[in-house]
Design a protein around this nucleic acid. Structure first.
Lengths: 204, 204
DNA sequence: CACAGATTTTACCATTTGGTAAAGTTACGA
DNA sequence: TCGTAACTTTACCAAATGGTAAAATCTGTG
């Protein structure tokens, strides 16, 4: 796809990483069309043609970021253990999602941008990778509910609500900063609120 | 700001509306920078200079949309009655928010785009208009909780969770369409799930 | 060290884009 | 119905943008 395709050199590995890091923040904030190659180049201290040396095009950078994101983003969902304690498994998943919003808000916003815009580059990925995993987790949750270990509800909407609430802290950070000024949005009350909320919801 | 400033003619009112309607869908999907004047012109069957005849610039269209949005968006929050039944007041607010996600997904995504990108054009608006209203509603909810009429929790995070869950159905529609294909996301289970969720959460 | 390949820089280029100038057309009140 | 102001269209333009060509420089290995 990009360049020689042989074993990447040390410099290649470093510079591709620098490019991705700079592009992540910019794409997350300004979107794909709203970000220019010059901006990315400036943010990582390179010249524009140098970016094209490492990535065939602006779109190639974006796609690389989305691909990386997709696997990282899904891993906590994958980690839910059907044999574990239902309530704890789901709460642990929620904690991981909150941690991701805290540690990786750029990734969250990159994803949000892509989905809000109709997922033009990610739809196939969502269908091939996310959908099967999602269905599988829904079945697990359904079984837990049938066994009376969780309150009864539509598992898909439960997952949506978890995503919505946890990602909101990263995606709408600008709004939250205005409404809860000064406070640390996470250390303060968010984690505790979210945990309490879903514990109460899920307890039969 | 824009044009003669006298009483707008019939044609002005109609054409400005056509422009706003076209621009709303495009800005919501592609973001401000990702939308071109030619696209807007094409979408409303006008020529590019004609847009500039009605709006001084692309940014003026965007700002007009955000201003309109801001007041419409906040009105349901404003409608919460301190003297009403607490649980019913909040649930009614949630129902209105769900209805807005169903009827006005473009507006929801326009707002989401703006906030995800750090609210560059809306920050003052958020501080002057949203913040006071938000604080006021938080105090009302706080009082309800102190009176034992609602379960105790952080009112700000409660409101965030309401926004997150309800707007998610509009903002992440592309993802939901993949995960719940065929079904009508709203008529089906969403409204009922959300209502049940918050009823359980809020009941003392 | 030498040198071949990898990397970086400078100078460009074609297209797109927001916006303007000005001529042409239409609507509407006197 | 006539004239003027409102509106629309055509032809442009300068800047920004994604990307290329090729010269210059650096790096690692024999």
């Amino acid at each position: 796809m990009t360049q020689p395709a042989r074993k990447p050199s040390r410099i290649q590995i470093e510079n591709r990483q620098r490019i991705r890091d700079a592009a992540l923040g910019l794409f997350a904030t300004y979107g794909f069309r709203g970000t220019t190659l010059d901006q990315i180049a400036g943010a990582c201290g390179m010249h524009k043609p140098n970016l094209i040396y490492y990535y065939d095009s602006k779109e190639a950078i974006h796609i690389d970021l989305l691909n990386t994101l997709m696997t990282e983003w899904l891993s906590p969902l994958d980690a839910m253990d059907p044999e574990g304690d239902p309530l704890e498994e789901i709460l642990e998943y929620i904690r991981k999602k909150m941690e991701m919003s805290r540690l990786y808000p750029r990734e969250s916003r990159l994803f949000a941008n892509e989905i809000v815009q109709g997922a033009p580059r990610m739809l196939p990925h969502l269908e091939r990778t996310l959908k099967p995993l999602f269905d599988q987790q829904c079945r697990i949750i359904d079984r837990w509910m049938a066994e009376g270990k969780l309150a009864n509800m539509h598992p898909a909407h439960l997952i949506f609500s978890i995503w919505a609430v946890t990602q909101h802290y990263a995606d709408f950070e600008a709004q939250i900063a205005v409404l809860l000024p000064g406070e640390d949005r996470f250390a303060d009350g968010a984690d505790q609120f979210v945990e309490t909320m879903f514990r109460k919801l899920l307890t039969p």
